[in-house]
Computed example of a mutant assay.
Amino acid sequence: MPEHTPAVRRCPDCDGFPVVAIGIGGRDRHGHLRTAAVHCPACHGTGTVTTRPVLARAGR
């Protein structure tokens, strides 16, 4: 029987791909490309965002 898994909201800025490798140019002495891992600033590298509670407006 399948289990119910909660829906996860993807980060709208990175669309679920929170870490990318950016080439910084050149090669090291072994011939490998030099890269830097960069994290999404909106989700801090998790790929998901938390849902904000909705404020209910009640009144007359």
Rank of each mutant, 00 (worst) to 15 (best):
M1C: 06
M1G: 07
E3N: 07
E3F: 08
H4D: 06
H4K: 13
A7I: 12
A7F: 09
R9L: 13
R9W: 07
R9K: 13
P12V: 03
D13E: 06
G16A: 01
G16T: 01
G16V: 00
F17Q: 05
F17M: 02
V19A: 09
V20M: 08
A21L: 09
A21S: 12
A21R: 12
A21I: 00
I22R: 13
G23K: 05
G23C: 00
G23A: 06
G23D: 13
G23S: 13
I24R: 04
I24N: 02
I24K: 05
G25E: 13
G25M: 03
G25T: 06
G25D: 07
G26A: 01
G26K: 02
R27P: 00
R27G: 00
R27E: 14
D28K: 02
R29S: 10
R29K: 10
H32D: 15
H32K: 14
L33A: 08
R34L: 12
R34F: 00
T35S: 03
T35P: 00
V38A: 12
H39N: 10
H39W: 05
H39Q: 15
H39K: 13
C40S: 10
P41D: 12
P41W: 11
P41N: 07
A42I: 00
A42F: 07
G45A: 15
G45S: 14
T46N: 03
T46S: 15
T46D: 12
G47C: 03
T48D: 02
V49H: 04
T50E: 09
T50R: 05
T51G: 14
T51D: 14
T51N: 05
R52L: 08
R52W: 02
R52T: 05
R52F: 04
P53C: 03
P53A: 09
P53W: 01
V54F: 01
L55F: 12
A56Y: 06
A56S: 08
A58N: 03
A58S: 06
G59V: 06
G59W: 03
R60L: 13
